[in-house]
């Protein structure tokens, strides 16, 4: 539950408007807040947006985060 809580916190950092999903513009907005370039943020968005529909849902975001925490197929 700590990981889910942390995932929710990070998702809210990105989804500042509380829409329930993250857009490419939301990621670009992080350019000043996180030490990543615009290209890297674009790359993160494309990597996490599994169905490539332009909307990064909480499920897609959390599966990317748990893979980061526990490795591929991490539980």
């Amino acid at each position: 539950s700590a990981v889910i809580e942390k995932t929710r916190e990070f998702f809210q950092i990105c989804d500042t408007e509380g829409k329930g999903f993250i857009t490419r513009r939301d990621m670009q907005r992080l350019n000043g807040e996180l030490p990543l370039s615009a290209d890297e943020l674009e790359n993160v968005f494309d990597t996490l947006d599994a169905d490539a529909n332009g909307y990064l849902t909480f499920e897609e975001f959390s599966s990317g985060f748990s893979e980061f925490m526990f490795g591929p197929g991490g539980t």
Binding site: F10, I13, E33, L34, P35, L36, E40, N43, V44
Partner: peptide, 29 residues
């Protein structure tokens, strides 16, 4: 294999992204 290189680059950027979120959260009081 360029695909392998691309996947590794993506993983690196993802790690950077989540690590900077982690340090951003722990940095705040």
């Amino acid at each position: 294999d360029p695909n392998m290189k691309g996947a590794a680059a993506n993983e690196g950027v993802l790690a950077n992204f989540f690590n900077s979120l982690l340090s951003k959260k722990t940095g705040s009081p």
